[in-house]
Amino acid sequence: MKRYMKRTVKDFTSHAFLHSITVVTIALTILIAGALLLVVENGETVIASWKNGVRIMVYLKGDAGSAEVTEAGHSLETMGGVAKVSFISRDEALTDLMESMEGQVSLFEGLGENPLPDAYEVEVTPEAAQWDRVKAMAAAMMRLPAVDEVEYGRSWLARVSRLLGMMELAGIALAGLFFIVALFIVYNTVRLALYSRRDEIEIMQLVGATGAFIKIPLYLAGVMEGAMGSILALVTLFGAYALFAAGAGGGADAFPLSFLSLGSMGGVILYGIFVGWFGCFLSLREFMKEASS
């Protein structure tokens, strides 16, 4: 294997231009697919953070007795899709409101009696954080005797959720498509590279070189090209991401951006290696068939 490695490295230096073209081609196609993957991953983070933040406010009737209030709390806790239930008394609610409207305390001066009702804050599990499900949960909560009013999200959030979901699907589909495109581009590039070395391979066959002697360095070259191409793509993508994240400014606060996860980066590199190997496999199979016919 050491001898094959040596031949592969030597081949890289003697066919530097040819190998560079293949590496850059792999890098470009993986860059596009990687960029889509980055969008999908960040989109998923946004959706996940929104789903984690879904809450339903359940306002209780002013004349509800303490037994009814406790009963409503139990019912909410045992309801499907509920992660956490917190009781907020009308006094706590007023204090919170006054704190949030600091500087406009005069508004509360002539208030007399506290107009706010007791309430339960219901946190929805991420799995249940879908518009239709939340709507159904809210309807069930409304049917509890102590409940006066239920407030949950806004319809635009539902639309954003649906849009992100569609983006996620489209992103995955596009990334998959570009990965397939990468495979075919690499296959053609490797095939062209092999054709340019047709005479060399023919001479090797004539001097009694076995298939393994001819193919192993070409496979190693394919794997190296794939690894180098995907690493180049990741470095370029990180550069572009860093520039974008720096320029995004305030936007970055609203949607915290992150680069590809370690798992995804490993996946991209493995995919690059696979593309290099598989492109080589397909081209060599066709080429050797032609050469021996």
Binding site: Q205, L206, V207, G208
Partner: peptide, 15 residues
């Protein structure tokens, strides 16, 4: 390949 090793081949265009 093993059969070809028993031949030494020379071409007009050297190859």
């Amino acid at each position: 390949p093993f059969l070809r090793r028993r031949f030494g081949i020379i071409f007009q265009d050297f190859k």
